[in-house]
């Protein structure tokens, strides 16, 4: 197995509006020294709630959001060091699928043009070859060639997501970043798209960086899972290890909060791990562990010392009291 993507200490900061006229500009650290790596042909899921920095991490990895520090080694080359034109050329290898199939397609362009555009931009093939490739991609993602000349709003949400996937595959990318690709879809349609993504991964040998808040979806698609909380990875493990034996209290809370058919009101189900409150503000992150205020296991040390990601069995956990 070869490492496709190796991210080291990625940090993203956003400057907020000045406080008062001469006050300092507060900085929000949305992603704080995140490191992970992704092998060729595998899928890494990044799970977290809103504000955890999961989407920002993915966007900074492919330079759609500017990173403040760190390295993104893609096939041995640091993407963060490339100049604009070199990065533009590199984009054929790293593609993106968005969450919202309604706003991610230009409403004024025909879908065939939307899918063909990456080839136009990268100047790949002759016009005939490009047309043939678009038709082939349409079949691959389960759309009909007679739909090529329609506009995005003439498709349902699931079909639009298929168009978005076709566009992402046009340039034969190696890495596909999927940002909540099914969370805007109805469950029955979700299953169709998830099966399609699983099939494409197997058939084309794609690697996924898969962002989701839905643990069930991540379990279905991903080989490895990283859990983020307030801009940091708090636990990272192979799929089964994470779901069968979660080590970080936050992972445990997430798993017990996710609704599941196995939990029945009629059988007197009561949630075992309850956590209260909301995540702290990323503008002023706590000195110690960010989860300490909501954690049932928190001790004095948790509020003072920030835990680091350390191996614990098959997992890597950032917690003073894992398990």
């Amino acid at each position: 197995m070869t490492t496709l993507l190796d991210v080291r200490d990625l940090t993203v900061q956003f400057a907020l509006p000045r406080q008062g006229f001469f006050g300092p500009r507060p900085v929000l650290e949305a992603v704080r020294q995140v490191s992970f790596s992704l092998e060729q042909g595998r899928a890494l899921g990044i799970v977290g709630e809103s504000g955890s920095g999961k989407t920002t991490t993915a966007m900074a990895t492919i330079r759609l959001v500017e990173a403040a520090g760190g390295k993104v080694m893609f096939q041995g080359e640091d993407l963060l060091q490339l100049d604009d034109e070199a990065m533009r050329q590199r984009r054929r290898d790293v593609q993106l699928i968005f969450q919202d199939p309604y706003s991610s397609l230009n409403p004024r362009a025909r879908v065939a043009d939307i899918v063909r555009e990456p080839m136009d931009l990268m100047e790949i093939g002759t016009p005939e070859e490009r047309r043939a490739r678009v038709t082939e991609l349409f079949r691959l993602v389960g759309l009909r060639p007679d739909q090529l000349n329609l506009f995005p709003h003439q498709f349902s949400g699931g079909q639009r997501q298929r168009i978005s996937i076709a566009r992402a595959l046009t340039t034969n990318p190696k890495l596909l970043v999927c940002d909540e690709p099914v969370s805007a879809l109805d469950v029955a349609i979700q299953a169709q798209i998830l099966n399609l993504l699983a099939r494409l991964k197997a058939e084309l040998g794609l690697s996924y960086l898969f962002i989701s808040h839905d643990l069930g979806v991540v379990r279905h698609v991903c080989d490895d899972v990283a859990v983020m909380y307030l801009g940091k990875i708090v636990e990272m493990a192979p799929r089964d290890a994470l779901f069968d034996a979660p080590q970080h209290p936050y992972t445990q809370a997430l798993l017990s909060a996710a609704p599941s058919l196995a939990r029945r009101k009629s059988r007197g189900y009561v949630r075992p791990v309850k956590i209260s409150g909301d995540p702290p503000s990323p503008i002023n992150p706590p000195k110690g562990c960010a989860f300490a205020d909501r954690c049932p296991k928190a001790q004095e040390v948790c509020r003072k010392v920030q835990p680091v990601l350390e191996p614990h069995g098959p997992s890597r956990v950032a917690c003073h009291f894992p398990g």
Binding site: L64, Q95, R108, R167
Partner: peptide
């Protein structure tokens, strides 16, 4: 700020193209 503009950047479109073919028609 809409996603289809980010999508155009993600497939490697240059700024001029984004302004003329994506943003202004919309």
């Amino acid at each position: 700020e809409l996603e289809y503009v980010t999508a155009a950047r993600a497939i490697g479109a240059r700024n001029r193209r984004i302004i003329w073919t994506v943003i202004l028609p919309n």
